[in-house]
Design a protein around this nucleic acid. Structure first.
Lengths: 129, 129
DNA sequence: CTGCATCCCCAGCGATACTG
DNA sequence: CAGTATCGCTGGGGATGCAG
């Protein structure tokens, strides 16, 4: 058994259409999560999003919002006024998602220092070779 | 107030070094999460990972493992045998992360159908214009 | 078995300008 | 105010081959 049978320690965890990949596809992209976070506090206008999320371009804001809307994660409400007013809001499903995203950011905050130090230590080792 | 003051509905949620971005940087990349999931069940060898994660290339497996190691999320243990045997294992910090990732995949499973239908409906509307 | 080096491609994103 | 259209780049990642 020293090298013949590798064992079945890890089953195939990603059959196709793996839920892991599904989430990632939904959450991937540079801006999706930040938009979800920004919109989580209630209906928010296009320009408010643009200002809330530092560094985002109009183009990416539009594109990402469209994708989120397509996936049923945000609703888009047009108020036919002048000037135009469009509000985006999380759907209930997205609110749930937001809660778990919150857990992720909590993890990040708790372990930010740990990761930074691990990284520094790793790089240190590489240099002193 | 109809258009003068936009209010402060959404504060700037992403100061620089935003935790949101930090997690994403750690979890982004096509394979990081799947590796974390696969390694969560215990120490796992390089080749086992390669077989567990369908579609991953040797190159990306190596690169992603290095990054995870650098961030202190996996440990790399070399057994100086012949043939070589290297085992990867989650660190405690990564185990915590894995728990929250589990929540994400749970969300994905619960709402997979919802998203698929939302998407289909959206595309339907686009076509029938 | 485990891993690095090289080449190459393309999707994601930024910049910019134009519209209802 | 809230978009859309076009262009061009960058780097993430796939394919392949070599090495300890």
């Amino acid at each position: 058994m020293s090298q013949g049978n590798t064992g079945v320690t890890a089953q195939v965890v990603n059959a196709h259409a793996c839920p892991v990949r599904e989430v990632l596809d939904r959450v991937s992209g540079k801006w999706s999560v930040q938009i979800l976070v920004a919109a989580a506090q209630g209906p928010i206008r296009f320009t408010e999003l643009e200002r809330s999320i530092e560094g985002i371009s109009r183009r990416m804001l539009t594109l990402t919002l469209r994708n989120l809307e397509r996936d049923g994660l945000v609703t888009r409400t047009v108020h036919p006024t002048v000037p135009p007013k469009v509000e985006y809001e999380l759907t209930p499903v997205a609110e749930e998602l937001h809660k778990t995203l919150q857990q992720l950011t909590d993890w990040a905050e708790r372990n930010r220092v740990y990761v930074a130090e691990a990284r520094a230590a790793y790089d240190e080792r590489r240099e002193t070779d």
